[in-house]
Every structure is written in C-alpha cells, then in structure tokens.
Measured scan of single mutants.
Amino acid sequence: TFVALYDYESRTETDLSFKKGERLQIVNNTEGDWWLAHSLTTGQTGYIPSNYVAP
C-alpha cells in the first residue's frame, strides 16, 4: 500500500480524490505518471498522480 503525501482533488471523472495520509492500494502502475489506485479509506477506485504518494 501507498500513503498520500498531499490532498488531491479529482479533475476528471476517472481521477480519484484523496486526502493526505490516506492509504491507497495500487491496482496498475504501468500508465506512466498516473496510476490506477483503490482507496482503502473510501473504497473508490480511480487514477492518481504517482508523485502524490509514497510507499
């Protein structure tokens, strides 16, 4: 799992909003700078900017 370093507000319907400190499970990280992730807090799935999270 990864932890959010910053808050992120989604800009498209495929993005995932999250708050700093939220735990995220990475589903697919082969898309370059945008990873498909599942929030362990909200249960939602969407794309996140990879530079906003850390292991």
Score class of each variant (00 low, 15 high):
Thr1Ile: 15
Phe2Leu: 07
Phe2Pro: 00
Val3Gln: 05
Val3Tyr: 10
Val3Arg: 04
Ala4Lys: 00
Ala4Arg: 00
Ala4Asp: 00
Ala4Val: 08
Leu5Cys: 06
Leu5Lys: 06
Tyr6His: 10
Tyr6Ile: 07
Tyr6Asn: 06
Asp7Trp: 03
Asp7His: 05
Asp7Tyr: 03
Asp7Phe: 03
Tyr8Gln: 01
Tyr8Gly: 01
Tyr8Ala: 01
Glu9Phe: 12
Glu9Thr: 13
Glu9Gln: 12
Ser10Tyr: 03
Arg11Gly: 10
Arg11Gln: 14
Thr12Gly: 14
Thr12Ala: 13
Thr12Leu: 12
Glu13Gly: 12
Glu13Asn: 13
Glu13Gln: 11
Glu13Leu: 11
Glu13Arg: 04
Thr14Pro: 05
Thr14Asn: 14
Thr14Leu: 12
Thr14Ser: 13
Asp15Thr: 09
Asp15Leu: 07
Asp15Ser: 09
Asp15Trp: 07
Leu16Ser: 03
Leu16Lys: 01
Ser17Ala: 09
Ser17Tyr: 04
Phe18Leu: 07
Phe18Arg: 00
Phe18Met: 07
Phe18Ala: 02
Phe18Trp: 01
Phe18Ile: 12
Lys19Gln: 10
Lys19Ser: 09
Lys20His: 05
Lys20Gly: 04
Lys20Pro: 02
Gly21Ser: 03
Gly21Asp: 06
Gly21His: 05
Gly21Ile: 01
Glu22Cys: 03
Glu22Thr: 04
Glu22Trp: 04
Arg23Thr: 15
Arg23Leu: 15
Arg23Ile: 15
Arg23Trp: 15
Leu24Glu: 01
Leu24Gly: 00
Gln25Cys: 14
Gln25Glu: 15
Gln25Arg: 11
Gln25Pro: 01
Gln25Tyr: 15
Gln25Ile: 15
Gln25Phe: 14
Ile26Trp: 03
Ile26His: 02
Ile26Ala: 07
Ile26Gln: 02
Ile26Thr: 03
Val27Pro: 05
Val27Tyr: 12
Val27Gln: 08
Asn28Gly: 15
Asn28Pro: 05
Asn28Ala: 12
Asn29His: 11
Asn29Gly: 13
Asn29Thr: 14
Asn29Pro: 14
Thr30Gly: 11
Thr30Pro: 09
Glu31Ile: 13
Glu31Cys: 13
Gly32Tyr: 08
Gly32Pro: 15
Gly32Glu: 12
Asp33Ile: 11
Trp34Lys: 13
Trp34Asp: 04
Trp34Arg: 14
Trp35Lys: 04
Trp35His: 04
Trp35Tyr: 08
Trp35Ser: 03
Leu36Gln: 05
Leu36Arg: 04
Leu36Ile: 09
Leu36Ala: 03
Ala37Cys: 02
Ala37Lys: 00
Ala37Thr: 02
Ala37Asn: 00
His38Asp: 03
His38Thr: 15
His38Ile: 15
Ser39Ile: 04
Ser39Arg: 05
Leu40Cys: 08
Leu40Arg: 04
Leu40Ala: 07
Thr41Phe: 09
Thr41His: 10
Thr41Ile: 12
Thr41Lys: 13
Thr41Met: 11
Thr41Asp: 15
Thr42Gln: 04
Thr42Val: 02
Thr42Asp: 03
Thr42Lys: 04
Thr42Leu: 03
Thr42Arg: 04
Gly43Pro: 00
Gly43Ala: 05
Gly43Arg: 05
Gly43His: 11
Gly43Lys: 07
Gln44Arg: 14
Gln44Trp: 08
Gln44Asn: 13
Thr45Asp: 06
Gly46Asp: 00
Gly46Met: 01
Tyr47Asn: 05
Tyr47Ser: 04
Ile48Asp: 00
Ile48Thr: 01
Ile48Val: 11
Ile48Ser: 00
Pro49His: 08
Pro49Asn: 08
Pro49Cys: 07
Ser50Phe: 08
Ser50Asp: 02
Ser50Met: 08
Asn51Ile: 10
Asn51Phe: 12
Tyr52Thr: 06
Tyr52Ala: 14
Val53Phe: 07
Val53Leu: 08
Val53Pro: 02
Val53Ile: 09
Ala54Pro: 05
Pro55Val: 10
Pro55Phe: 10
Pro55Trp: 12
Pro55Met: 11
Pro55Ile: 11
